[in-house]
Every structure is written in structure tokens, then in C-alpha cells.
Design a protein around this nucleic acid. Structure first.
Lengths: 141, 141
DNA sequence: ATAAAAGCTAGAGTGCGCTCTAGGTCAATA
DNA sequence: TATTGACCTAGAGCGCACTCTAGCTTTTAT
């Protein structure tokens, strides 16, 4: 409330672009930001705190529409926390699951890398190129 | 090579849509798939193996262009594995980093959830709603 | 023999999340 | 006084990754 920040400052602070900050406000990810007499935005520390949480939701894959739904809950039911909790809990579980899938994918990629390293060490050809050869043969018929 | 599969079968096997399979071939994620006399696609077991790895790359966030670059390396340098290894290693590191960021984000979300649970238990209001009030006050001036 | 189901291509359309442009105001600096 | 630079709005444009349509042929089931 006391200290207020310009668009430019907030862009620098959050890592979001100036364009994105205006866009986020336009679509309702942010409540309307306070304006000076000439219409320029002034962000409060609380605005920045919300932006930081919002970015976390986005970076964990929450679609913009769902973040808007979350923001709307705060606006419409500021004293009712349970709906927000449920929405966030659902998201948390999705992130958790995604995390587990990624971990598994990483293991497979690591296996493939191990395989490559062995091939490089022994100077052998990649076995999987057979599959490409098959197409070459066919196209030469 | 021996057993071959129809478009429909491969869609079911990989979880990709029929449209997507044709699209992937068109843009070069797959080498041209073998065709029957009437022009219908017939996928080999190797095609499916590559599709499965490809899906893993996509699901770990590798952009299509980069997957194409990877596929091109196999086609152009089937005996040279080191470039492929480097590309894949770079991707692996990005996935690892992403995984760590996600883990951190998850912790913050869990903290927020803890906070919500406490509020629900004590029946208190969410402190963060102050930030929304600020805007309401301003709009009433 | 005919209808339904599966396949084909080229290319248009969609949804998401920005990102940029045009055309303007206002304040401070050279 | 003129110009630079930060800001404003409305709305157009873009890149990605599909997804679907139109109009056609072929195959399979009844």
C-alpha cells in the first residue's frame, strides 16, 4: 500500500514483460491495478506478492483460465477459503503426478544416454538405425 | 519389419490420434512410413518404438523442431552417435532442472495449502484478502 | 450390390499464451 | 521549444501443436 511501483519496476521484479503484465490485468489474472491521476499503473507490494504466486501456478502448468477462477474465488468469497483450498489441492496433485511422470521419463532418457555412451566407447553402430534403413530399402525398390 | 500395423492400431498403441500420426509424418518427426499398394500406411515395430521414444521427448517438453533435428541426425548420420548424444544430454539437463524447479514450486504450494488448512481450522479470514480490499477502497473514492 | 467403415491428401481452423503495433497523452530534459 | 521516453488503449498478429474438414478412393460386411 505505502510503497508503490511502476509497470517497469514490476516487470523487472517479476520477470514478466510489460506487455504480459498489462495482458494479465486485462484478462482478470490481476484485479484492476491502482492508477495515478494520469492513468498510469501503480502496483502495491501485495500486487507483487500475488503476481509471484500466480507465476508459480503458471510455471507448474495451471492454465490461465484456472488461475482466473482462483483469483475470482478470492474476489468473490474473500472470507471463504475452502473452495480455494480444494482448487489448489487438485492442482497440487496434478503437479505431483506430473513430477512422477517426468522422473520416469528422465530415467528412460538416461538409459538411452548410457546406450549411446557404450556405442561411442566400442565404436559400434547404433542398432536402432535398422528402422531407418527399412524405409530407404523400400524407397529404392 | 515382419509384423506391420495400420494407422488405427498405432494410434491405439501410442495414444496419439490418427490426425497427429499423419501430422508427425508430414512434418518429419517420422521418416516416410511404408505404404501398401493402395497408399495406406503400414507401421513396423521399429516405427512404434521410435514413436514411443518421441512421445517421451515431447512429454518432457522438447519442442517439435528439436525432435525433428534429432530424427534428422539419425537419418543423416546413422553411424555417428555423438551428436545425438549431445543433443539428448542437453535435453536431459533441461528436464532435470525443470524437475528441480517443479519440486520447489510444489513445496511453496504445499505451504499455501497448510496455511489454508489452518485458516479453516480456526475460522479466521485469509490475510491476503487485504490486497483485494485495497482496490475496492480505491474504486470507491 | 450396396452401404458402412477406413483410408488418403491438401489445406483450413482452433486454442493457448503471449507479443507487438498504431496512435495517442503527459512529463521532463537539452 | 522540441524531443525523448515512459506510459496509455484497442486490437492485430504470431508461434506452437495440433485438430478438423472436404472431397476423394478403397475395403469390408450384409
Amino acid at each position: 500500500m505505502t510503497t508503490e511501483f511502476t509497470l517497469r519496476q514490476v516487470a523487472k521484479a517479476t520477470g514478466l514483460s510489460i506487455h504480459t503484465l498489462r495482458y494479465y490485468e486485462k484478462v482478470g489474472l490481476l484485479a484492476p491495478i491502482f492508477r495515478t491521476a494520469n492513468g498510469h499503473r501503480r502496483y502495491s507490494a501485495e500486487d507483487i506478492a500475488w503476481l509471484e504466486f500466480l507465476v508459480r501456478l503458471r510455471e507448474t502448468g495451471m492454465p490461465i483460465k484456472k488461475v482466473i477462477a482462483f483469483a475470482d474465488l478470492v474476489r468473490q468469497h474473500p472470507n471463504e477459503v475452502s473452495e480455494r483450498r480444494m482448487l489448489l489441492e487438485e492442482h497440487r496433485n496434478q503437479v505431483k503426478q506430473h513430477l512422477e511422470e517426468l522422473t520416469h521419463h528422465l530415467q528412460v532418457i538416461d538409459l538411452k544416454l548410457e546406450h549411446y555412451k557404450q556405442l561411442e566407447a566400442t565404436g559400434e553402430n547404433d542398432h536402432s538405425c535398422i528402422f531407418w534403413k527399412h524405409h530407404l530399402e523400400k524407397s529404392l525398390e
